[in-house]
Simulated scan of single mutants.
Amino acid sequence: MATARTPDAAFVADESFVPTSHKGLTYPFGGKEPGDGEVMQVAPGVRWVRLNVPGPLKHINCWLIDDSDARGDGVALVDAGMNRTETREAWKSVFKGPLAGVRVTRMIGTHFHPDHIGLAGWMCDHHQAPLWMTRGEWLTAQMLVADARPETPQEVNDFRRGCGWSDEQIDLAAARGWSNFGRIVRPMPLSYRRMVDGETITIGARAWRVITGSGHSPEHACLLDEAGKVFIAGDQVLPRISPNVSLGITEPDADPLGEWFDSIAKLKREVPPDVLTLPGHGDPFLHLHTRLDAMDREHRSRLDELEVFLEEPRRVVDCFGRLFRRAIGQEVLGMATGEAMAHLKRLEVEGRAKRETGSDGVWRWRVT
Rank of each mutant, 00 (worst) to 15 (best):
Ile241Cys: 08
His289Met: 13
Arg346Asp: 03
Val46Trp: 03
Asn157Gln: 04
Ala175Cys: 04
Gly282Asp: 08
Ala336Phe: 09
Ile201Leu: 11
Arg176Ser: 08
Thr110Met: 15
Ser179Lys: 01
Pro273Gln: 14
Ile65Asn: 05
Arg183Thr: 10
Leu303Ile: 06
Ser191Arg: 15
Asp147Trp: 10
Ala265Asn: 09
Ala205Thr: 12
Ile328Cys: 10
Val308Ala: 03
Asp73Asn: 10
Arg71Gly: 00
Met188Gln: 14
Met335Tyr: 05
Val18Met: 06
Gly213Arg: 08
Phe285Asp: 02
Pro189His: 04
Arg84Asn: 07
Ile249Leu: 13
Ala340Arg: 11
Arg103Met: 01
His216Val: 02
Met107Ser: 15
Leu139Val: 15
Val275Asn: 12
Val18Phe: 03
Ile108Leu: 13
Ile170Arg: 01
Arg346Cys: 02
Val316Leu: 09
Arg50Ile: 11
Met1Ser: 08
Trp365Pro: 00
Lys23Pro: 01
Val18Tyr: 05
Ile211His: 11
Glu307Asn: 05
Asp69Ile: 14
Val362Trp: 01
Ser263Glu: 09
Leu347Trp: 05
Val12Lys: 13
Lys354Glu: 13
Leu247Gly: 15
His220Glu: 14
Tyr192Lys: 05
Asp197Pro: 14
Val75Lys: 05
His22Ile: 14
Glu312Asp: 13
Ile241Tyr: 11
Val46Asn: 07
Met1Tyr: 08
Thr20Leu: 13
Asp73Ser: 06
Val94Pro: 03
Gln330Trp: 00
Gly24Tyr: 03
Thr200Asp: 11
Val78Asn: 10
Phe159Ile: 00
Thr87Asn: 13
Val332Met: 14
Leu257Asp: 04
Pro187Tyr: 08
Ala294Leu: 01
Pro19Gly: 02
Trp48Gln: 13
Arg352Gly: 01
Ile232Gln: 11
Ala43Phe: 14
Pro153Lys: 12
His111Val: 00
Glu298Leu: 07
Pro54Arg: 09
Asp171Gln: 06
Gly35Asn: 06
Ser191Cys: 12
Ala80Ser: 09
Pro218Cys: 07
Pro98Arg: 04
Val156Asp: 03
Glu305Asp: 13
Ala353Tyr: 00
Gly334Gln: 03
Gly74Met: 00
Leu347Tyr: 03
Leu25Phe: 04
Phe159Ala: 02
Trp178Asp: 09
Val237Trp: 07
Glu89Thr: 07
Arg346Gly: 01
Thr6Met: 08
Leu51Trp: 03
Pro189Arg: 09
Leu247Trp: 04
Ile241Pro: 02
Val53Gly: 02
Thr250Gln: 14
Gly164Ala: 00
Thr26Lys: 13
Leu347Val: 08
Pro256Gly: 04
Trp165Pro: 00
His281Phe: 13
Ala129Asn: 03
Val94His: 04
Arg47Val: 00
Lys354Val: 07
Ala9Met: 13
Gly361Ile: 00
Gln330Asp: 12
